[in-house]
Structure formats: structure tokens, C-alpha cells
Design a protein around this nucleic acid. Structure first.
Length: 644
DNA sequence: GAGCACTGC
């Protein structure tokens, strides 16, 4: 989110008691600053370009001000006159919030009126909102409710070069929406595909939100959609080609020169080399590549390595491995040194090594589990996901494997169509396995427990164990630990926290209760941010399941029932203990160990279900519960049979 | 007995 970075040193916060004079002085100052932005000089030209091109690629260097200014130019240029609004997507929540705040200040209006933002758990928009910043994932969700994205006259996809999975899916979707809303009303969406069934699979379904599948006849009543793809990388060609040779324009940024230094010989120990370089001066991590501005950076040290998460779709294994960076990453990293003045970048490798790096990092869609993407696309009526016009096609096996697990979860029928259960699952903002778990739990009569369990499984690690207080944190965990596994342990933590919070709220204000909950977390070696996140997710999915009409009942103390429900939900990931104490994953045959952070690390029960499989030094399973193999035979008979 | 950079609904 480069646009916001220009402003990191000056903030224009509204002070409620400022005088009129102060107000105008501030306003003038903002105007002056806006005019100084490199992009200001080309305002009229840009508005013309958007007027003349339905799709426009804007390559804006860091610091050009494109993110904050272009929406304002378009508003002024009359793109909201027909009642449509301008939507701008960002890959990160923080960017959506800070830019929206910034732009509302520049417009001199309270946030949430003309200018607003929407992210998960937070909608700061109103009927007055004309410029709406949001996360790309949120716009994808909106498409499920309004497949034509009818309220937008312009959609700007910012930071497209980051190629997050949400951005990539959104681009494909927007291409379809634009086509459906364009003048050629006889065109059908998905005409790119060979399969004539595309886009019509769910016709006749009127009982769910999916009936809004893009039909040309319906699109008639919508205005054409203007699409703007903004990227910071020099390579606009990929986007331009994808959008049928769309016009690309370049906007100058404000970047100071950065001197690049390479090492003379290969560095074998990069930490050593980094430390030496740092002492002689920041270290480039992935943080340096994002929008977070750390003021005062003049020097960047780039070890040339990155910790990257990859996913093996065949085995369903997440790996965290250290790999070399790409050229684009290296450029991004060095660029950080030149934001506020001339800078220096030390690359801890030889120049010849740089030349050998790949041009750019593999887009996320090529290296992650696709079951959610496939489910969402199907819910949007795109049944032939394999032939979907992605900007970059995921591996076929990755899609096929996602389809297979969706089929095993009952989300997809044998005819490869979304089932009723699949539609239900698509409505939930969760991993499909977790969505299914909620539906299963409503049948088992333990949805109350499963809502908590799924919320807790959806967040980063709940426990934290600082090295210096390992013993204390272990003792704290003991008070929550269940001999049956991590799922019940997480349930115990959530319940204990909630009980503490509710009691506190009876005598204190909400704010005070929140504060003492954070203290409680600290005392119990629980990550309060993760817990807060889980509580937010919990209230959101509770609302969701109530809207879906699922019965939220509790199994009370019947934990046997709950564990059976875990088996019925997570049967795709089960493992059996081997004679030598390791585990064999039932479906893949992979040999794994229980992660040392699990409460079952020592107990080693005969049969387990788990939620995560990560490969680091070993293959580990995390979030593990003890089950009975016979339950699998009973509850997932399509996959499990009696053993000899 | 582990090792966690970041992000999203």
C-alpha cells in the first residue's frame, strides 16, 4: 500500500475543538500536499483514460499517491453520478483502514460518510459512501450476495502485483462481471470456456443466494463496470494481456536513488554476514516488502532468502521452507531504502547470484489449498473450475484434489455440482472442513461446542510459551489440558476465558472487562490477540449459523458425543499409531509425529484426528484429538472399513 | 521435544 506511505510523517487528525481558522489552515495544507504528489500533474489525463477505457492498468511506483488520489479524481470526474460507487480493494486490512482515514481527511469529511472502509468484522460505510476501501477477500464475499457487484460503477484492484489468492480470484470474477454488465448483453459469462454448461449449473435454484448467477438478460439493468488494475511492478504486460490487451499507463513515483552493494564471495553463514553488515548498519524480511512504513530507513540488508510457505496438494502438507528470493522481491527490498532520501542496500550475495534468481515469486494460487476457492467459485455458478479463466492457472491436480475433498465432505455431488450442503458451506467464512463441521455438529446436537472449537482452530496459536518462562506456561496449560486432546483443551480455554469475561462484565464496563480479560490471558500464558480474534470469529459464525437456520444446541458434558462429532467432521485427516510410535496418515500413508505443542504429544493414543499437517524438520500433525477407529468406520463408511 | 515472515473471509 505505497500510497499511504507518503503521509507517515504528517498526520491530519481531526481535532474536535479546532477553530475555524485552524480548520482552513489545515485544509489548505492538505491541498498543497496533494498538489505536490507526482500523480497530481496527470489527474485530467488519468480521468480521460478511465473514461475511454473500460479496463485500465495503472502502474504506479511507490509513493506516487495513486491509492489515495485516483478514487478522488474519479469521484470528481463524475464516475459516481449514476449512483454507483467506487470500490478499491487492498490485500491487507491495515491498508484499507489507513488509506480510508487518510482520504476522508483529505476530503474533509467524517470517516464512514463519503469515504469509508469495510473489512471483516468492521463496516465503516453508510448509504452516503461513494469511495469505499476494502479488503479483496471482502469483495469476493460480497460477490456471493450480489454477483453483479451492482453497486459499484468503478472497481480498483490495488496492489495487484502481490498476486494474493484473493486478488487472483477476484480478477477472474471481475472479468466475468464486466463482461456481463457491458453493452454486449447477449454475451454469456464464461464464454471463454468450452463447456456450454458453464454458468448455468444452478439455474432453477431459487432457494439460495446463488440464483443471481450472471445472466446476460439480467445484466441489462446495470451500468457498465469500469475496472482499474493498479500494480507497483513494472510488469504490466501480464495484466494487460489477461484483460485482452487493456491499456496500461505509467505514473511516476517519488523514489530516491539506492546504491546496491554485493558481496565479493558467496556468504555461507547469512546470519553472521547480516550481523556484520548491520553493525558496520535494517534487515530485509518480508515485512520490508509490504506497506508498513518504518520511517528513517536508509539502509537495507538483504540476505537473499525468504521463509516461504508451500503446500503439497497431493499430500495435503504445508511446508515452511527457506528459499531464495526473486528479483522482484530483491528490488522491492532495496526500494525501501529510498523512500525518504538516497539510500544503500547491501545484498549478502554475489551479483551473479542475483542474475540467477527467478523474476518473480510464485503467485499464492499456485502454492495453497484450493478447496475454498473451488467452493466459492462453484457457489458463484462457475462449475467448470478447471477451465476457469484464471490469470494464472493453478495446477490441475491441485484443483482435482480440492474437488475430491469437497466431494468427500458432501459439498459436491457425483455430477460435480455443488450440493445443498455445499451451498450452506459456501456461506460461512471458514475453511470448508470447518464449515462442514458446523453442519455436522448441528445434527449431533453439539453446535454450541463446535462453534467455539472451529473459531479457536481458525486463529493463530492460542498458547504462548516464552523461553524464559517455559515452566510457568506449561503449568498454566495443565489447568486447561484435556486428556482427550487439543480440541477439548481449546474448548476449555475459551469457556474459562468467557466465564471470566462475563463475570467481570456484570460489575464492570465492557471496556474494563476487556482489559481484565487481557490481563487474565497474560496470567494464563494465552495470546490475547488470538483469543480476541477467536471471539470475533465466534460471534460472526454464530450469527451466520443462526441465519442459516441451524439449531445451536449444546451437548453439555457429553464429551464422548463431541469427540464422535469431531471424528465425523475431520475424518479426512486421521492417523493410526504404528508399532514404533510414529503415526501413519490413513488417506495419504504419510508418516507423521504429533507436534510437541499438542497435549497428546506424550500420550500417543492409537487413533487420532488432526487439523494441520506441517513439514519442518519432521512431518508434524497439530491440533490433535483421540478418537476410536470404529467411529470412523461408523461415521465415514465411504472411506473406512473394519480392519482385520 | 519444537522453532513461528506476513496476510485474508
Amino acid at each position: 500500500m505505497p500510497g499511504a506511505n507518503n503521509f507517515s510523517r504528517n498526520s491530519y487528525l481531526h481535532h474536535p475543538n479546532q477553530t475555524k481558522g485552524e480548520f482552513f489552515a489545515r485544509k489548505q495544507k492538505i491541498e498543497q500536499r496533494r498538489k505536490k504528489l507526482p500523480i497530481a500533474a496527470v489527474e485530467r489525463r488519468l480521468v480521460e483514460e478511465v473514461r475511454n477505457n473500460d479496463t485500465l492498468i495503472i502502474v504506479g511506483e511507490t509513493g506516487s499517491g495513486k491509492t489515495t488520489q485516483i478514487p478522488q479524481y474519479l469521484f470528481k470526474g463524475g464516475f459516481c453520478r449514476d449512483g454507483g460507487i467506487i470500490g478499491i480493494t487492498q490485500p491487507r486490512r491495515v491498508a484499507a483502514i489507513t488509506v480510508a482515514k487518510r482520504v476522508s481527511e483529505e476530503c474533509g469529511v467524517p470517516l464512514g460518510q463519503k469515504v469509508g472502509y469495510a473489512i471483516r468484522f468492521e463496516d465503516v460505510t453508510s448509504g452516503l459512501t461513494k469511495i469505499k476501501y476494502m479488503t479483496d477477500g471482502l469483495l469476493l464475499r460480497e460477490a456471493l450476495l450480489d454477483p453483479y457487484l451492482s453497486k459499484y460503477s468503478v472497481i480498483i484492484v490495488d496492489e495487484a502485483h502481490e498476486r494474493t489468492i484473493h486478488t487472483d480470484v477476484l480478477l477472474g470474477l471481475l472479468k466475468n462481471v464486466q463482461k456481463a454488465r457491458s453493452k454486449g448483453i447477449n454475451e454469456v459469462v464464461n464464454t471463454d470456456h468450452n463447456n456450454s454448461n458453464n454458468g448455468h449449473a444452478s439455474e432453477g435454484r431459487i432457494d439460495n443466494q446463488n440464483n443471481g448467477i450472471l445472466k446476460p438478460g439480467q445484466a441489462k439493468k446495470y451500468n457498465p463496470l469500469k475496472l482499474i488494475i493498479m500494480s507497483a511492478s513494472l510488469d504490466a504486460r501480464v495484466f494487460s494481456e489477461y484483460f485482452g490487451g487493456a491499456r496500461a499507463v505509467h505514473v511516476q513515483g517519488r523514489q530516491f536513488p539506492v546504491d546496491i552493494f554485493y558481496t565479493h564471495k558467496p556468504e555461507t553463514d547469512c546470519i553472521d554476514a547480516a550481523l556484520i553488515t548491520i553493525f558496520q548498519v535494517i534487515l530485509a524480511t518480508n515485512i520490508a516488502e509490504t506497506s508498513v512504513t518504518i520511517p528513517g530507513i536508509k539502509y537495507v540488508v538483504d540476505p537473499g532468502l525468504v521463509k516461504a510457505r508451500t503446500y503439497d496438494p497431493k499430500m495435503g502438507v504445508d511446508s515452511l521452507i527457506i528459499v531464495t528470493t526473486s528479483k522482484a522481491q530483491a528490488l522491492q527490498r532495496s526500494g525501501r531504502a529510498g523512500r525518504e532520501g538516497p539510500g544503500k542496500c547491501y545484498r549478502l550475495y554475489q551479483e551473479s547470484f542475483f542474475e540467477k534468481l527467478t523474476d518473480s515469486t510464485l503467485p499464492e494460487i499456485k502454492r495453497c489449498d484450493l478447496s475454498n476457492v473451488v467452493l466459492q467459485l462453484k457457489a458463484l455458478g462457475i462449475d467448470d473450475v478447471i477451465n476457469f479463466d484464471f490469470i494464472e492457472k493453478p495446477d490441475r491436480t491441485a484443483i482435482v484434489n480440492s474437488l475430491w475433498s469437497l466431494y468427500l465432505l458432501g459439498a459436491v455431488t457425483e455430477e460435480n455440482k455443488l450440493s445443498d450442503v455445499g451451498y450452506q458451506m459456501a456461506k460461512l467464512p471458514l475453511d470448508p472442513v470447518y464449515s462442514k463441521a458446523l453442519i455436522v455438529a448441528s445434527q449431533f446436537g453439539c453446535l454450541k461446542e463446535m462453534l467455539i472449537c472451529v473459531a479457536m482452530l481458525s486463529v493463530e496459536s492460542i498458547f504462548y510459551a516464552p523461553r524464559e518462562k517455559l515452566e510457568e506456561s506449561r503449568n498454566a496449560l495443565k489447568s486447561f489440558a484435556s486428556p482427550d486432546g487439543d480440541h477439548l483443551t481449546l474448548l476449555n480455554v475459551y469457556r474459562a476465558a468467557d466465564e471470566f469475561f462475563q463475570k467481570n462484565k456484570m460489575v464492570n464496563s465492557e471496556e474494563k472487562a476487556e482489559k481484565s480479560l487481557r490481563k487474565w490471558c497474560k496470567d494464563n500464558y494465552i495470546n490475547s490477540r488470538s483469543l480476541k480474534h477467536a471471539r470475533d470469529i465466534h460471534s460472526q459464525i454464530l450469527r451466520n449459523v443462526e441465519q442459516m437456520g441451524l439449531r445451536v444446541t449444546s451437548c453439555e458434558d457429553d464429551m464422548l458425543l463431541f469427540r464422535r462429532c469431531l471424528a465425523a467432521s475431520f475424518f479426512l485427516k486421521a492417523a493410526m499409531k504404528q508399532p514404533d510410535g510414529v503415526y501413519r496418515v490413513t488417506l495419504s500413508g504419510l508418516i507423521v509425529q504429533i507436534h510437541p505443542s499438542s497435549v497428546l504429544f506424550r500420550a500417543k493414543p492409537e487413533c487420532i484426528i488432526f487439523n494441520e499437517l506441517v513439514h519442518t524438520n519432521h512431518s508434524y500433525v497439530r491440533n490433535v484429538s483421540r478418537i476410536d477407529y470404529l467411529w470412523l468406520v461408523e461415521l465415514a463408511p465411504h472411506l473406512y472399513a473394519l480392519q482385520d
